[in-house]
Nucleic acid binder design. Structure first.
Length: 563
RNA sequence: UGGGAUGUCGUCCAACGGCAGGACACAUGACUCUGGAUCAUGGUAUCGGGGUUCGAAUCCCUGCAUCCCAGCCA
C-alpha cells in the first residue's frame, strides 16, 4: 500500500480532524468507533466505514472501538455478532480490549432518561403507535402535542419505572422526549426514547422489557466511550440536532458527528434488508454466497483483505451520494493478485487434442514458470503427452477475423510445450459437435523457434489431468441500478438468472489436486481463482474470483454487435 | 409543498480566488511463450442564469436537478 503522509489529509474528514488537532480540541486526541447493529452480515459498504474509522485512529495515533448497537432484540442475533467480529478481524483491524455494546449502557441510559423526566424534558405517552404516527404531522404540517405531554414529573417517573418493571403490555406506553411537535425537523417532534418490548436479547436475555431507541442510545454510547469523532452516513445528518440536544440536556461529553456518503456499487444491492431477503428467499446460497457483496461472500469468492482495503482507500470519501463502478472493485482484486498469484493451467471447457506424430505412451516433464511477476516463485513440471485438453473456445471451425487461435491448418504454441498444427476435426456423427482435434507437433524446442506464432494456448495432459468443478460468477443483477426496473416490478426483477455457472469436468494440472480451500492462483489466460470451502483433497472446487482482462472477448463482442 | 444535504470527465475522487488533475472505464499503438501484466498516446467534465473580481469550479444572488426525513427500525 502507498505510504500515507499523516500531514497531508486525503479527504474532508481528515481535514476536519487535522484542524481539530491544531485547535487543541479533545486535547488533540482522536477516538473513533465502528458501531454495527448485529442484524445481518457485514458488506463492502461496512468495509468502507471500518477502514475509515480504524484507519483514522491509526493515522492520528488514536483508538477505534468496536461497539454493537444492539438496541433491537427482535432483529439481532448472536450469529451476526460472531460473524461481524470475524469479518472485522479478517479485514485486518483490532479493537484490542475495546469491545463494547450499547446494551452495556442500558442502566446508565435509564438513569439519564430519569434525569430528563426530572427536568421535565421527557414524558410517558400512552398513545398507540398508530396515534403517534397520526399526530406527528407531515413534512409540511406541524404535529399535534400528545395529551400525555402535560403529565407531572412524579407521574412520569412512576410510570417509567413501572414500564421498566414490566407492569405494562408491549406497545402500551413509550417514553418520549419533550421537544417541539412543530419542529420542521421531524426527528425533533417528541421522539420515542423507550418502547416496551418483550424479546430475548442476545446479550441481556430477558433482563429488560424496555429497550432504548437507536436515537436515544447511539449518541450517549459515543459520549460514554469518549468518542471524539462520531462518523456516520448521510441519512443521520437530520438526527444530529437531536443527538446534540440529548448531550446538551445531559451535560455530558459531546462527540462531533461527521457524515459521509455510504458506498453504493453498480449491479449490486447493499441494504442489509435486501441481502437478508436474498438469503431467506434462497436466491443465493447464504450470506457467504460468492456473489454477495458481504465480506464473507467476497472472502469466499477470493477477495483478499488487502484488495478491499485498497479499494476503500481509492474510492475516496465525500458527501455526494454516488455509485462506484463494480469494475473498479474487480480492478483492485486483479491489481492485488497479479504480483503474488502463482500461475496454473486449467482447462474449463475441455476439447481433446491428439498429437498424431507424438509417440504413444511418452511423457515429457516440461518446465513451467510459477509466476513471471515473481522469479523467486520458481518452476514446476508439467507433464506433456500425446493426448491433451485445450479450451473449447480456443478452436474455431470458421475463425472470425482477428481470431488468432487454433483452426484447421493453423499453428499455435502450447505454453511451455510445442507448436502444434491442427490437421483435422473429428465430429460426433449424430450431433455434428466437434469432439476431438487431430494435430501434429513440431518437435523443435520452443526456445529455438524463430518463426512468428500468433497465439499461445494453455493445456492440460489428458492422462494427468485432475477433474474439478469450477464455479463462474457474474453480477447478481443485470441492471447497473437494480432499482431501475419496469413499473410494478420490484428490485428482485433484475436478478441475473446467469449469475452462477457451474462447470464440471474441468481439467486441472496435477499440482492442483490437493489445493486447500482459500488457495489463490491465476488460471493462465482466464482469471484469478480460489479453492472454495467445498473443495476436498483430490476433488477440487474452484471459484472464479475475477476474470483477466480479455481483449479477444471485447473484440468478439464488438464484432457480434455488428460494430 | 417543510427541513436537511449534494451538484466537476461515462464512473469515483482532487483542485479550498491563480494553467481543471488522478484513478477506473473507453479508444489507439508498442511489447509479450498468458489476446495477462507492463509501457506510451488520446478523447470526454465545472447544473443553468446573473453578479463580485485583474482573475471564479471555488465568493454572492437566483433558478433547476438529485438524494435523505413523516418506524414504538438502525
Amino acid at each position: 500500500m502507498p505510504e500515507i503522509n499523516p500531514t497531508e489529509p486525503s479527504n474532508f474528514i481528515e481535514q476536519i480532524i487535522t484542524e481539530d488537532i491544531k485547535q487543541g480540541k479533545n486535547q488533540g486526541k482522536v477516538h473513533t468507533r465502528f458501531p454495527p447493529e448485529p442484524n445481518g452480515y457485514l458488506h463492502i459498504g461496512h468495509a468502507k466505514s471500518i477502514c475509515l474509522n480504524f484507519g483514522l485512529a491509526q493515522k492520528f495515533g488514536g483508538k477505534c472501538n468496536l461497539r454493537f448497537d444492539d438496541t433491537n432484540p427482535v432483529k439481532e442475533e448472536q450469529e451476526y455478532i460472531d460473524a461481524i467480529m470475524r469479518d472485522v478481524r479478517w479485514l485486518g483491524f483490532d479493537w484490542e480490549d475495546r469491545l463494547f455494546h450499547a446494551s452495556d449502557y442500558f442502566e446508565q441510559l435509564c438513569a439519564w432518561a430519569e434525569k430528563l423526566i426530572q427536568d421535565g424534558k421527557a414524558y410517558v405517552c400512552d398513545l398507540s403507535a398508530e396515534d403517534v404516527r397520526l399526530t406527528r404531522g407531515t413534512l409540511t404540517q406541524p404535529g399535534k402535542e400528545s395529551p400525555f405531554r402535560i403529565r407531572s414529573v412524579e407521574e412520569n417517573l412512576d410510570l417509567f419505572r413501572r414500564m421498566k418493571a414490566g407492569e405494562f403490555p408491549d406497545g402500551s406506553h413509550t417514553l418520549r422526549a419533550k421537544i417541539d411537535m412543530a419542529a420542521p425537523n421531524l426527528n425533533l417532534r417528541d421522539p420515542v426514547l423507550y418502547r416496551i418490548l418483550r424479546a430475548t436479547h442476545p446479550r441481556t436475555g430477558d433482563q429488560w422489557c424496555i429497550y432504548p431507541m437507536y436515537d436515544w442510545a447511539h449518541g450517549q454510547s459515543d459520549s460514554i466511550e469518549g468518542i471524539t469523532h462520531s462518523i456516520c452516513t448521510l441519512e443521520f445528518e437530520d438526527h444530529r440536532p437531536l443527538y446534540d440536544w440529548f448531550v446538551e440536556q445531559l451535560g455530558i461529553h459531546h462527540p462531533q458527528q461527521i457524515e459521509f456518503a455510504r458506498l453504493n456499487l453498480s449491479y449490486t444491492v447493499m441494504s442489509k434488508r435486501k441481502l437478508l431477503q436474498l438469503v431467506r428467499d434462497g436466491r443465493v446460497s447464504g450470506w457467504d454466497d460468492p456473489r454477495m457483496p458481504t465480506l464473507s461472500g467476497l472472502r469466499r469468492r477470493g477477495y483478499t483483505p488487502e484488495a478491499i482495503r485498497n479499494f476503500t482507500e481509492r474510492i475516496g470519501l465525500a458527501k455526494r451520494a454516488s455509485v462506484v463502478d463494480v469494475a473498479f472493485l474487480e480492478h483492485c482484486l486483479r491489481e492485488d493478485q497479479n504480483q503474488p498469484a502463482p500461475r496454473r493451467m486449467a482447462v474449463l471447457r475441455p476439447l481433446k487434442v491428439v498429437i498424431e506424430n507424438y509417440p504413444e505412451g511418452q511423457v515429457e516433464q516440461m518446465e513451467a514458470i510459477n509466476n513471471p511477476e515473481d522469479p523467486s516463485a520458481g518452476m514446476r513440471l508439467l507433464p506433456f503427452s500425446r493426448e491433451l485438453y485445450i479450451e473449447r473456445d480456443d478452436f474455431r471451425e470458421e475463425p472470425p477475423p482477428k481470431f488468432f487461435r487454433l483452426a484447421v491448418g493453423r499453428e499455435v504454441r502450447l505454453r511451455y510445450g510445442y507448436i502444434i498444427k491442427c490437421e483435422r476435426v473429428i465430429k460426433d456423427a449424430t450431433t455434428g459437435e466437434v469432439i476431438e482435434l487431430r494435430c501434429t507437433y513440431d518437435p523443435t524446442p520452443l526456445a529455438q523457434i524463430t518463426r512468428k506464432v500468433k497465439s499461445t494456448l494453455h493445456w492440460v495432459s489428458a492422462q494427468a489431468a485432475v477433474n474439478a468443478e469450477v464455479r463462474l460468477y457474474d453480477h447478481l443483477f443485470t441492471q447497473e441500478d437494480p432499482e431501475d426496473v419496469p413499473e410494478g416490478e420490484d428490485w428482485t426483477a433484475g436478478l441475473n438468472p446467469n449469475s452462477l455457472e457451474i462447470l464440471t469436468g474441468c481439467k486441472l494440472e496435477p499440482i492442483l489436486a490437493e489445493a486447500e480451500s482459500g488457495y489463490h492462483c491465476q488460471f493462465e489466460r482466464q482469471g484469478y481463482f480460489c479453492a472454495d470451502l467445498d473443495s476436498k483433497p483430490g476433488r477440487p472446487v474452484f471459484n472464479r474470483s475475477v476474470g483477466l482482462k480479455d481483449e479477444w472477448g471485447r473484440l468478439e463482442k464488438k464484432q457480434g454487435a455488428g460494430g
